[in-house]
């Protein structure tokens, strides 16, 4: 099967992701930022597909581009738009933040170059069409118990949030 994952697609999607990420933080209108964020998330989903991870790509679209973005839009609806537009885009710490980002980036490149000797190399290449099945088997067979406990964890989080936030129970 001819791979669709060509170099062209990688750079194409990466540039879209990076450019729209910059748009997210530079636009004055929160709605524009939110739309740009959706573009970033969708192009990331494309990159996941190129890495033969269809499940992660689908989750990326459903959860992030879908669910979490809706939450963001709700918050944007609730804030005062005119007031938000007058606020400064960048606060005074942006130089410090830039240095931190560059250091972190350098560290990542360093680990990418040198880290191969530290961690054992494990290549788990599943055939493309069984990728999602393997995740399903892991979640519902090998890790069934932690998976079920995680559902209780979420329930406790909801109950806890309600208990703490409600004025009178």
């Amino acid at each position: 099967m001819m791979p669709v994952a060509t170099t062209f697609f990688f750079y194409f999607l990466s540039i879209i992701a990076v450019v729209s990420a910059i748009v997210v933080i530079t636009r004055k209108s929160p709605v524009h930022s939110a739309l740009a964020l959706i573009t970033t998330l969708l192009s990331l989903a494309g990159l996941y597909l190129m890495l033969y991870a269809p499940f992660v790509a689908a989750v990326q679209i459903v959860l992030y581009a879908g669910g979490i973005m809706v939450l963001f839009l709700f918050v944007i609806m609730l804030v005062n738009l005119e007031k938000a537009q007058l606020e400064e885009r960048f606060n005074k710490q942006w130089q410090v933040a830039l240095i931190a980002v560059l250091t972190l980036g350098a560290l990542l490149i360093f680990i990418f170059e040198k880290g191969r000797s530290v961690f054992p190399q494990t290549v788990t290449n599943f055939p493309e069409n069984t990728n999602t099945q393997v995740i399903g088997l892991l979640l519902y067979r090998d890790y069934l118990m932690p998976f079920e406990l995680a559902s209780l964890l979420l329930l406790v989080a909801i109950v806890g949030a309600v208990v703490m936030a409600k004025k009178r129970v």
Binding site: Y143, P146, L149, A150, L153, V156, V159, G160, V163, M164
Partner: peptide, 19 residues
């Protein structure tokens, strides 16, 4: 006997206790 299980158990206990 699995670090994922242990970690989720720890968080389940901790989250309940915070509340």
């Amino acid at each position: 006997y699995d670090i994922i299980m242990l970690f989720i158990g720890l968080e389940l206990m901790a989250l309940s206790t915070y509340v």
